[in-house]
């Protein structure tokens, strides 16, 4: 097997694995149960997306994808920080959410 064929196979496998992890993370976003859980899952979604873009760039050889990955990392970090500030400043009601969680 040549190097290029091996690389192509690896990239395809990686894309498959990343797609499954996208799905699993989205399940966590939908299920919650609390707001920080969802924020964490969205943060994780960004990290997985950066990896996805990296593999895509590797497979197509289109190097501009790297810049997109970096920009996505920046935006994702800022979003997580903003969400965390929101939780910290009392925007989320922990007791109410936990009560709902116990009911369901």
């Amino acid at each position: 097997m040549t190097g290029a064929a091996f690389l192509n196979m690896c990239a395809n496998f990686a894309l498959g694995a990343i797609t499954i992890s996208f799905l699993l993370v989205v399940v966590r976003v939908v299920k919650g149960p609390s707001l920080p859980d969802r924020i964490l899952a969205l943060d994780m979604l960004v990290a997985v997306a950066i990896g996805f873009i990296a593999v895509l760039g590797l497979r197509t050889g289109f190097t501009l994808y790297v810049d997109i990955a970096i920009a996505l990392g920046l935006v994702g970090f800022l979003a997580t920080v903003a969400f965390a500030r929101f939780v910290m400043s009392g925007g989320a009601d922990a007791k109410k959410e936990e009560a709902q969680e116990e009911q369901s």
């Binding site: 694995a17 990343i18 499954i20 992890s21 996208f22 699993l24 993370v25 399940v27 966590r28 964490l40 899952a41 994780m44 990290a47 997985v48 990896g51």
Partner: peptide, 9 residues
């Protein structure tokens, strides 16, 4: 990445 998302669940 896959194990991390399994862990998240």
């Amino acid at each position: 990445a896959l194990t991390a998302s399994i862990g998240l669940l």
